[in-house]
Computed example of a mutant assay.
Amino acid sequence: MNILLVYAHPEPRSLNGSLKDFAVQRLQRGGHVVQVSDLYAMQWKAALDAEDNTALQPGVRLDVSLNSRQAFENGTQSADIAREQEKLRWADAVILQFPLWWFSLPAILKGWVERVYAYGLAYGVGEHSDTHWGDRYGEGRFAGKRAMLVVTTGGWESHYGPRGINGPINDILFPIQHGILFYPGFDVLPPHVIYRTSKIDEVGFAQVCEALGQRLDALGTTAPIPFRKQNAGDYEIPALTLRPEIEPGREGLGIHLLRG
Results as ranks from 00 to 15, higher is better:
residue 124 G to L: 00
residue 117 Y to E: 07
residue 125 V to F: 06
residue 195 Y to H: 15
residue 112 W to R: 03
residue 103 F to G: 09
residue 213 G to D: 02
residue 126 G to K: 03
residue 197 T to H: 09
residue 168 P to I: 09
residue 188 V to H: 04
residue 217 D to Y: 10
residue 119 Y to H: 15
residue 155 G to R: 01
residue 207 Q to W: 11
residue 103 F to N: 07
residue 215 R to P: 02
residue 191 P to K: 04
residue 117 Y to R: 07
residue 111 G to L: 08
residue 205 F to D: 05
residue 184 P to K: 01
residue 213 G to M: 00
residue 180 I to Y: 07
residue 119 Y to K: 13
residue 144 G to E: 10
residue 164 G to P: 03
residue 166 N to I: 04
residue 144 G to F: 11
residue 158 S to H: 13
residue 158 S to E: 14
residue 106 P to Y: 06
residue 194 I to T: 04
residue 112 W to Q: 02
residue 162 P to H: 12
residue 123 Y to K: 09
residue 126 G to V: 02
residue 211 A to L: 14
residue 124 G to N: 00
residue 148 M to F: 04
residue 128 H to F: 13
residue 113 V to Q: 08
residue 121 L to K: 00
residue 194 I to E: 01
residue 205 F to V: 11
residue 196 R to V: 07
residue 217 D to R: 06
residue 139 E to T: 11
residue 115 R to G: 01
residue 189 L to V: 08
residue 202 E to I: 09
residue 163 R to N: 13
residue 174 F to L: 11
residue 144 G to A: 11
residue 103 F to M: 15
residue 214 Q to S: 14
residue 188 V to M: 10
residue 115 R to Y: 08
residue 194 I to N: 00
residue 104 S to F: 10
residue 203 V to Y: 12
residue 149 L to W: 06
residue 165 I to N: 12
residue 130 D to I: 01
residue 181 L to R: 02
residue 207 Q to H: 13
residue 128 H to W: 12
residue 200 I to E: 03
residue 117 Y to F: 15
residue 181 L to V: 06
residue 206 A to N: 12
residue 141 R to Y: 14
residue 152 T to V: 12
residue 186 F to P: 03
residue 120 G to Q: 02
residue 215 R to M: 00
residue 135 D to R: 03
residue 162 P to I: 02
residue 113 V to C: 10
residue 122 A to H: 10
residue 131 T to C: 01
residue 164 G to C: 01
residue 198 S to Y: 13
residue 141 R to G: 09
residue 141 R to N: 12
residue 104 S to T: 15
residue 198 S to F: 12
residue 103 F to E: 03
residue 182 F to Y: 10
residue 201 D to A: 09
residue 190 P to Q: 06
residue 204 G to A: 06
residue 164 G to W: 02
residue 111 G to D: 08
residue 209 C to R: 14
residue 195 Y to E: 07
residue 169 I to D: 00
residue 184 P to A: 04
residue 170 N to M: 15
residue 154 G to C: 08
residue 183 Y to S: 14
residue 142 F to N: 00
residue 150 V to H: 03
residue 192 H to M: 01
residue 142 F to S: 01
residue 190 P to C: 05
residue 183 Y to N: 13
residue 142 F to Q: 04
residue 186 F to I: 06
residue 198 S to V: 14
residue 126 G to A: 07
residue 205 F to K: 15
